[in-house]
Design a protein around this nucleic acid. Structure first.
Length: 422
RNA sequence: GGAGGCGUCGCCUAGUCCGGUCUAUGGCGCCCGCCUGCUAAGCGGGUUUGGGUCUUAAAGCCCAUCGAGGGUUCAAAUCCCUCCGCCUCCGCCA
């Protein structure tokens, strides 16, 4: 939810942001009108309610005929108060509905446009020249199957398409990867968290995943719970409706969880292997901080992602996501995309978003500012490792014989230098 | 799944039976001030959150807030209903 004060003081900034996202900027005037309506009707209700209350006190003190007369008056008043209350409630509701349609105000510098309008910030590392090495790179599934590391067929038998078993070296590789990520997070000062993967509707909504992403989310109807698509959801809900203490600096959490995504609307895309699946594991960084420090913290999150990517030694590029591809909560988002040799293109491995106060406002997370008053906190998130990273590791470190060299940083946790078939 | 108990503005707590001076009591903690070689003690004051209004701003005033949401009533912390959470016991169980 955006800050209504910003909307009132500087509607043009919001309009420009909406346009950059390729969304309706007319909504701004609608919301302003609804807000005006909300305040007017609220004031009308409050004035009459004050009268009712003072009259109620006279009733309590009065006796006999005087009391009867007052009762008649206040009875009539009560009906009008009830009426105005309903009007004010409806105005509030209308405002709430409308304001939720406005996305977060983008950070200056975010490229305009949609999915393909990203700006490449930097390339890190150089893709291997397999032709020069004299062999054609196998794709991750071919490599994994030879290693008996992934079983797609039985995943499908047990759970359906886009499910899989990580087996043997595959299971060990994932655990080593996640352990390495968590180890880095803890060393950096993050509080490690194993989070719930089922959450209540208000948390899923508050985190912002029931708007544009609603189709992506699994829902358990019998229990009215949602399966999370990332531990961001649970970590965002963690401090909902709280006044947190940021006087010692940002609160940094590293969530470890299984993630569930319906992948609706991606039929036929990435059907091979474990690139796009319904269930995977992820280590996620999540930060609560003073909004004044949010942009600097965002840079740090990106740096920590880079630190982790360096550990798996794959070439990647960093993109500054365009406004239309941000999602409603983010003001800015950087993705790191690893080179996938079999596809000859870059695929997303990490994503870090600065949600400024947008997410926290909806979830009611504030902090005590120096003046003593409360202020809405900023939230940020970023990926530290996911199951998908296995794709990049296998393909970029494969050898002609189908074996895979284990990146040095993973060896302590994996206990192997090379993954060898058979 | 069943039975019972509980949920009050940081923590503890009075109030709920029997609706109205509850504008929610008291203690602890915390903040400010006084006093004081220093500290402690003592004394005085302050201390939920959100919103509205007024103002350059602050103060003030108003509304809401006693787990959440509905209802009854002129009037709800208090009565009724639903839900949530915690505790105790029973049942069931990977």
């Amino acid at each position: 939810m955006i800050d209504i004060k910003l909307l009132r003081d500087d509607p043009d900034v919001v309009r420009a942001s909406q346009r950059a996202r390729g969304e309706d900027d007319g909504i701004v005037d609608e919301v302003l009108a609804a807000e005006e309506q909300r305040r007017t009707s609220l004031t009308a209700y409050e004035q009459l309610r004050a009268e009712q209350k003072s009259l109620g006190k006279q009733v309590a003190a009065a006796q006999g005929e005087e009391k009867a007369a007052l009762l008649a008056r206040t009875k009539e008043l009560s009906a009008r108060v009830k009426d105005l209350d309903a009007t004010a409630g409806a105005a509030q509701e209308r405002f709430d509905t409308l304001v939720r349609r406005i996305g977060n105000v983008i950070e200056p510098g975010v490229p305009s446009g949609g999915e393909d309008d990203y700006v490449v910030v930097e390339h890190v590392g150089t893709p291997r020249d397999f032709a020069a090495e004299g062999f054609a790179p196998r794709d991750h599934l071919e490599l994994a199957e030879a290693l008996d590391a992934v079983d797609m067929a039985r995943g499908a038998k047990v759970s359906g398409a886009r499910f899989y078993f990580l087996k043997g070296l595959g299971a060990r590789l994932e655990m080593a990867l996640l352990a390495t990520a968590m180890e880095q997070a803890v060393a950096t000062g993050f509080v490690p968290m194993v989070t719930p993967t089922l959450v209540a509707p208000q948390v899923m909504r508050g985190a912002g995943f029931l708007d544009a992403h609603a189709d992506e989310v699994y829902r358990l109807e019998a229990d009215d719970l949602y399966l999370v698509g990332t531990s961001e959801v649970a970590l965002a809900g963690y401090h909902a409706e709280e006044i947190i203490d940021l006087s010692q600096g940002p609160l940094r959490y590293a969530g470890s969880s299984t993630c569930y995504r319906r992948e609706a609307g991606s039929y036929g895309k990435d059907t091979r292997g474990i690139i796009r699946v319904h269930q995977f594991n992820k280590i996620e960084m999540f930060v609560y901080c003073d909004p004044a420090q949010a942009a600097a913290e965002h840079a740090r999150l990106l740096a920590w992602e880079r630190e982790m990517l360096a550990k798996i030694e794959v070439p990647y590029r960093i993109i500054d996501t365009a406004a239309g591809d941000l999602g409603s909560s983010a003001a800015r988002k950087f993705d790191c995309e690893a080179w996938v040799p079999s596809q000859g293109r870059y695929r997303e491995l990490t994503s870090t978003s600065n949600c400024t106060t947008f997410q926290a406002r909806r979830l009611g997370t504030r902090f005590r500012s120096e003046g003593g008053g409360t202020q809405v906190a900023a939230t940020l998130n970023g990926t530290l490792a996911t199951t998908r990273w296995i794709v990049a590791i296998l393909e970029n470190h494969q050898r002609a014989d189908g074996s895979v060299v284990v990146p040095e940083a993973l060896r302590p946790h994996l206990g192997l230098d090379v993954l060898t078939p058979g």
